[in-house]
Amino acid sequence: MSDTIQLMRDRLAALAPEQVEIGDESALHAGHEGARSGGGHFQLTIISKHFAGQNAVARHRAIYQALGDLMGSRIHALSITALTPDEL
């Protein structure tokens, strides 16, 4: 699953983040209905100026767009905290 995290980092580079932290929580969800598809559960914290002036929906959409086809394949579930440097 660590290669998934690297792929996520590579894709999220499109948002020019100052900081990206990704936690793999897949083990917590092993065995539940959604885990059968094989995708992992991840926790993402991302800090980027890109999010300035965007509401939460727009920020999450930008992240989903950057992750592209990883969503629904390698990523089954993603918990997101998206902030600008000013919001830290």
């Binding site: 939460a56 929906v57 999450h60 969503m71 629904g72 918990s79």
Partner: peptide
């Protein structure tokens, strides 16, 4: 929006569980 759950209020998409 690629994930579930999704909340709608008065026909408008509000967000998923983090939001």
């Amino acid at each position: 929006w690629p994930t579930i759950p999704q909340l709608y209020v008065k026909g408008q998409f509000v967000g998923g569980s983090d939001i």
